[in-house]
């Protein structure tokens, strides 16, 4: 049976995944603020409420902590909730239920329960929403054993990884970059999953490995085109999964190219790039490095409102090109 592949936007792909999940399993329930008739702050849920009704597509009051806790309790007792946070920044309100309850209940109860909850977080900057609506907090949650944390970067993966998350018996936190919602890409029809815990090589190369997450994957690919014209051949790895992280793919890539550049939007210090760098320094790839490991991450500031400042606060294509060039030419 051939599966048709069509162009969908990232948000359409997510909606399609949720529709498939709702259809297939009566235990699946969507929860979030304004996800019903309003269609979701980023129009991701769209008209799902018309298709599945208010009992399956539940508007919650503005109660992130309580709402996340209800989702946890429901997951422990037999439902498969997909809880949408309106902005990833609001994860801070729910940290108690995410970190102390969802992540730990299975362990604290010695395996007596599982917590199959999915939480979705629109994240990242570039919309002028400023400091409290633009953060990238995946490293915070990636730091917590018991959670799984993913960042699909393409419409194809957004659908497949969400379906994998719904099927996962453990809590899965999905960070979706807001600027990706309108990006289009090929998405197969029907049900399929993209495995959690596997990175993807988006561009094969020999001179430098760029490991990037989310929207930075696309910036890295753009930079790679510029660099190719200069004779610099870059390999771009889409990390996709923060916890568990696919170290094997990164290690193999760095062994091949001898150079590593990490590009991510979260604040640079104590972020994902720091983990990747340390992991490589401890690995087989260490003595294949022919250049220092460089990280391009978010600035050590809250995200500013002014659009130029906002852009300057996170890595951009010219910065990626310059860093890559310096590394490969051996001047850094």
């Amino acid at each position: 049976m051939s599966t048709e592949v069509r162009e969908l936007s990232y948000s359409q792909a997510i909606q399609e995944a949720m529709a498939i999940a709702l259809e297939a399993d009566e235990r699946v329930v969507l929860m979030g603020e304004d996800i019903g008739v309003y269609g979701g702050a980023f129009q991701v849920t769209g008209d799902l409420i018309e298709r599945f009704g208010p009992e399956r597509v539940m508007d919650t009051p503005i109660s992130e902590l309580g709402g996340a806790g209800v989702a946890v309790g429901a997951a422990v007792t037999g439902l498969r909730p997909i809880f949408e946070f309106q902005f990833s920044d609001f994860a801070t309100l729910a940290m108690e239920q995410i970190v102390n309850q969802a992540a730990k209940m299975r362990y604290m109860l010695g395996g007596a329960v599982s917590v199959p909850v999915v939480m979705r977080f629109p994240a990242g900057s570039g919309t002028g929403a400023a400091a409290q609506h633009s953060q990238s907090l995946e490293a915070w949650l990636g730091h917590v054993p018991g959670l799984k944390v993913i960042q699909p970067a393409t419409p194809h993966d957004a659908k497949g990884m969400l379906l994998a998350a719904v099927a996962d018996p453990d809590p899965v936190m999905i960070f979706e970059h807001k600027l990706l919602y309108k990006m289009k890409g090929p998405v197969p029809e029907g049900h399929y999953t993209v495995p959690i815990g596997k990175a993807a090589i988006r561009r094969s190369g020999t001179d430098l490995t760029i490991v990037a997450t989310s929207i930075m994957v696309h910036k890295a690919l753009e930079a790679a085109e510029t660099l190719a014209a200069e004779g610099i051949d870059v390999e771009v790895v889409d990390l996709r999964s923060i916890r568990p992280m696919d170290s094997a793919t990164i290690i193999a890539s760095v062994i091949k190219t001898h150079r590593l550049l990490c590009v991510y939007e979260g604040v640079k210090t104590l972020g994902i790039g720091a983990e990747i760098s340390a992991m490589i320094a401890e690995s087989e790839a260490f003595d294949r490095l022919d250049a220092p490991i460089v990280r391009l991450g978010g600035a050590e500031t809250p995200i500013p409102y002014n659009p130029e400042l906002e852009k300057a606060a996170v890595p951009q294509v010219p910065g990626i090109v310059a860093a890559a060039r310096d590394l490969v030419r051996g001047v850094r």
Binding site: V70, G73, V76, L79, E96
Partner: peptide
Amino acid sequence: NLGANGIVGGGIPIAVGAALTAKRL
């Protein structure tokens, strides 16, 4: 018994979640 809880108030929303499941299913 879904568990004692080390966080004051931690179990209250969880119980509501259990009730949600009971109603849905």
